[in-house]
Computed example of a mutant assay.
Amino acid sequence: MKYTKLLTLLGLNKNEADLYLISLQLGPSTAIQLAQKVGVTRQMIYTLLPQLIEQGLMKETAHSSKRLFQAIGPEVLNDRVKNIADQVKEAVPILKTREAANSSVPILSVYENPISMREWYRRFMNEAKEGDQLFIWATNKTWLSADPDFLEEFLAFKKKNKIKDYILAPNTPESRAQAEKLKEEQPYAEYRFTDSWWHTNAEKWLWKDSVSYLTINENATNLIVLESKALAEIEYYNFRQIWHQLKP
């Protein structure tokens, strides 16, 4: 059924979810009627019904000496969602204490879509200090379009904390227009434009000991992050060599 998967995300198994949805449609029904509609045995239905009643999703009524069962209105699901959210909120700090010490700084991380890439941005916003520096080989592509709402938050964080961006970009009208467009959001960014630019939709970012490679495509935007102090030092050296050769 259409909403079975949704209910399983709220902790019900498939049979429980199907029973709840069918009962919601039928209204007060006997156990036999529900078993037939759900497609389970009589023994199974008498196992499922008490489980849903205990979870507050169904109730038992009586009519003309018949035992009837009825789903509680779907508003009850809001309470279930809130309860799960409260449990998750309580569990996260505990789980963080059990996280492996080196798991927050892996040697190599691959984020295969803009949503998973948020982990890197969140890490940056949690760890970056005021005045930190970010070195970027940029393209003339609008990387903001990959996840606009979240990346606007990222830009706001950089602006508030005066993060200094040093950006190498292609010397093209599109690239200069993009830099001008983002001037207000990135007041601490400094650009230098090169005529010897790369003809790919890839960017490279340097921050602390991480080297990040970002590919920008409509259906395949991803981020590869390499954590290595030694390799980062090489990349910083290469960046500065090019930077100082270009005019401000």
Rank of each mutant, 00 (worst) to 15 (best):
N222Q: 11
A169H: 04
K37T: 02
K2T: 10
V88A: 07
A169I: 05
S228L: 08
L144P: 06
T30Q: 04
Y236R: 13
A202P: 00
W137Y: 10
N83D: 10
N217I: 00
L26W: 00
N102F: 11
L246Q: 04
R240Y: 08
P173K: 04
K160N: 10
Q43N: 07
L144V: 09
L19I: 01
R118G: 00
L6N: 13
N238L: 15
K229N: 07
A230N: 12
K141W: 13
A179W: 04
D86C: 09
T97C: 11
I72Y: 07
A31I: 02
L10W: 00
K37M: 07
K141M: 15
V225H: 05
L231M: 10
W120I: 11
K37I: 01
M1Q: 06
P173W: 05
W120M: 11
Y46E: 02
F154E: 07
A220V: 02
K129C: 12
T142D: 15
D18M: 12
V211R: 09
V76R: 04
P74T: 08
A138K: 04
Q43Y: 10
K2Y: 08
P74F: 05
I32P: 00
S103K: 10
E54P: 01
V211A: 05
N171Q: 06
S212T: 06
E190S: 04
F150W: 07
A146D: 14
A101C: 11
R122P: 00
Y236K: 15
E174D: 08
K89M: 06
A232E: 02
Q241H: 13
L155S: 05
H63R: 15
E227D: 07
V225Y: 03
P74G: 03
M125V: 10
D209A: 11
A230I: 14
W198Q: 13
W207M: 08
E227I: 08
S196K: 07
M58K: 00
K183L: 11
D132T: 06
V105N: 14
L151Q: 07
E112W: 13
L95N: 03
K37F: 08
T200L: 15
Q36G: 10
L9R: 13
R98C: 15
L52G: 01
K37Y: 01
I22T: 06
S64D: 14
E185V: 03
E184D: 09
K181L: 12
E16L: 07
S104P: 00
P114N: 03
P170H: 02
V110P: 14
G39N: 09
T172Q: 02
R192N: 05
S65K: 15
A71G: 00
S212G: 06
I216R: 11
V211I: 12
Q87C: 06
V76C: 03
A85L: 13
M1G: 11
T172S: 00
P93S: 03
L168W: 07
D79E: 14
I32Q: 09
T172L: 03
E112P: 12
A220N: 06
D132M: 01
D18L: 06
D147G: 01
Y166R: 09
K37A: 11
A189T: 10
K158V: 01
E185P: 00
V211P: 11
G73V: 01
I167Q: 07
K37P: 02
Q55S: 12
Y237D: 14
A128L: 11
K183V: 07
Y3D: 07
L68D: 02
N113W: 09
W197Q: 05
